[in-house]
């Protein structure tokens, strides 16, 4: 891996203006994340974690500062270029899964590949492989509402991974899951990390943050601490 950071935020801020109310959801955030890091954004509800995550995932734009992804300042990119990045560089996993309700598991996972112009047969092959990898090889033709919460999140993970993105972003991925299913999902992330993926997980749960190699505390729109997780560092050194 090169030493250049995968992504860098410089003095990033996000301000919401609602009539007379001004809300600074992010204030002067500085952050560098390198390839194959496993990062947790942790903090109380409303602290700005999701806002930060959405900016990193090119779903939202900062109102101040600069975001540089793979050496490119994102502010310079137009709509199409952003769509391209969301399609190729980023795999997003949401708390509420965000699956397409009318499409079965297979079609959900095939969807991002459509925008790459991959032919149907190949899309089908890649998507069923990705579902196989998350243990859903038997559930290809189930609709989201025919799947359990854990299974839905695994479909979402397969969909995020199928395009082999450089970063996996997960916003409270276990927020809607029971504790044992949560463990399964986090174990999956751990494996992905060991396989070389770059992962950022948003959570308010210290037990989830435990899994990560680097833990960034966010309070009231600011980064208040940015520490390496001792246990994890050892684990990684052992690989």
């Amino acid at each position: 891996m090169s030493d250049a950071p995968l992504l860098e935020l410089r003095q990033v801020s996000k301000r919401y203006v609602m009539g007379d109310n001004i809300l600074d959801a992010l204030k002067d955030v500085n952050l560098k994340i390198a390839h194959n890091e496993y990062v947790a954004f942790i903090g109380p509800s409303g602290s700005g974690k999701s806002t930060l995550m959405n900016i990193v995932g090119c779903l939202d734009r900062p109102t101040g500062g600069e975001y540089i992804l793979n050496g490119t300042p994102v502010a310079q990119l137009d709509d199409n270029a952003l769509a391209h990045i969301r399609n190729r560089e980023i795999g997003f996993i949401f708390q509420n899964f965000n699956l397409l309700g009318r499409a079965n598991a297979l079609h959900n996972v095939m969807q991002p590949l459509i925008y790459r112009g991959i032919a149907l047969g190949e899309r089908r092959r890649l998507a069923s492989q990705a579902l196989q990898n998350v243990g859903l090889g038997e559930r290809l033709h189930h609709l989201p509402n025919q799947l359990s919460g854990g299974q839905r999140q695994r479909v979402a993970i397969a969909r995020a991974l199928v395009g082999k993105p450089s970063i996996l972003l997960a916003d409270e991925p276990t927020g809607n899951l029971d504790s044992s299913t949560s463990k399964d999902v986090m174990a999956m992330f751990d494996t992905l990390y060991r396989d070389g993926h770059t992962i950022i997980v948003v959570t308010h749960d210290p037990n989830i943050a435990e899994h990560c190699q680097r833990v960034i505390h966010i309070m009231d729109g600011r980064i208040v601490s940015d520490k390496l997780n001792g246990k994890r560092r050892e684990a990684r050194a052992g690989v």
Binding site: D79, A83, H84, R86, N87, N98, P112, Y115, R159
Partner: peptide, 16 residues
């Protein structure tokens, strides 16, 4: 709207 948001997050362009 939500569905559109989802496919945008997956990389759908305006013209798609």
């Amino acid at each position: 709207t939500r569905e559109i948001g989802i496919i945008k997050s997956l990389g759908a362009r305006r013209r798609d």
